[in-house]
């Protein structure tokens, strides 16, 4: 699902132009990458294919809670967060064997798997090169590098991969995977922005919590959309996650009904489409979609509460603007 984000950045008075320029500069200013290199071409295409730029926006908002907001280092960090996210998507598409991304062929389809893997790797290494080369404030560098390592993201992928068609998945396992795959990088983006602008540590922690709650709500809603919307609206078959063996929150909730549980347990890789179609219909009619949305709403409510706790900071309004953006997406 791609939503135009110009209105969000306008409302927050964040320059998308500058974010995009900083993003492109990460590769164009790299003396090791030739101007005609497949690496440069691929990275620029990835950046120019769009995206919501939520993570850089979060870094910048986070910085508004500190005493040195929106300095050059904040914009650089913002670009770095988006670069890591984009690199992870390149590898994600290979893992998921996804042919398209944002309506365009995935990088491993326009090149090949080997090249796409190395382009994703390049993006991660370039970020490391930039972050680790900074000599000022070594302790902060260590913190930033540590929080930007993608170990948790990888663990989330393993959890997803190893639990395909696992209808014994517990809610606890589902939350852990969701947090690892989605929420942590959002939480980290806000936290990094706050730390970079020397915000109070307690405030930085609250911002992390806000990002975590928002990320969890975002992912639950994504899981709901997959089952709720039509193939036309999604641009992929309805229930694509389930067809791919992903056991998401609405599926887990629907399984509380024994008849649905026994139907879902018949699903496996290679099961006929008709069986999946029936399962999706059963889930849609079970009330699980509405219950999952309620859970998403609970996360959103907790996030809102944090914005109110931060009411002494003028930037709490920016947090609420971001909240409204997510709320529109979640309801």
């Amino acid at each position: 699902m791609t939503l135009s984000n110009s209105s969000l950045s306008d409302q927050l008075q964040i320059s998308m132009k500058q974010i995009n320029r900083d993003l492109e500069r990460i590769v164009t200013a790299d003396p090791d990458v030739a101007s005609r290199s497949i690496v440069r071409k691929s990275v620029l295409e990835l950046i120019r294919s769009g995206g919501k730029r939520l993570r850089p926006i979060m870094v910048i908002i986070g910085s508004r809670f500190g005493i040195k907001p929106e300095r050059t280092n904040v914009y650089q960090l913002a670009a770095v967060c988006e670069f890591i996210h984009a690199a992870s998507l390149v590898h994600d598409d290979i893992l998921d064997q996804a042919d398209t991304r944002r309506g365009q062929p995935s990088l491993h389809k326009t090149t090949n798997v080997q090249t796409a893997v190395q382009v994703g790797n390049y993006m991660m290494s370039r970020v490391l090169e930039l972050l680790s080369a900074r000599t000022k404030d070594r302790d902060r560098n260590i913190d930033e590098l540590a929080s930007l390592t993608t170990t948790q993201l990888c663990l989330g992928e393993y959890q997803q991969m190893d639990n395909r068609y696992n209808f014994d998945l517990t809610l606890e396992q589902y939350w852990e995977k969701t947090r690892n795959k989605t929420a942590i990088l959002m939480a980290t983006s806000l936290h990094l922005g706050a730390r970079a602008s020397e915000a109070d540590e307690e405030v930085a922690k609250q911002l992390y919590e806000f990002g975590d709650q928002l990320g969890m709500a975002f992912q639950v809603r994504d899981d709901v959309l997959d089952l709720q919307q039509s193939a036309e609206a999604l641009g992929k078959p309805a229930g694509a996650d389930l067809r791919n063996g992903q056991v998401t929150l609405p599926v887990l909730l629907a399984m509380e009904e024994p008849a649905i549980e026994s139907h879902l347990r018949k699903l496996h890789e290679g099961a006929p489409d008709q069986l999946f179609d029936e399962a999706i219909k059963l889930i849609r009619n079970s009330g699980a979609i509405e219950r999952a949305l309620e859970v998403s709403h609970t996360f959103m409510q907790r996030a809102w509460d944090i914005t109110e706790q931060l009411a002494d900071y003028p930037a709490h309004r920016d947090l609420q603007t971001l909240w409204h953006y997510f709320e529109k997406r979640t309801y």
Partner: peptide, 17 residues
């Protein structure tokens, strides 16, 4: 191949940590 991509990513991120 997907699994190997993930393994390589994980090992690199673990190296950093």
């Amino acid at each position: 191949a997907g699994r190997s991509v993930l393994d390589g990513d994980f090992i690199m991120s673990f190296y950093l940590q």
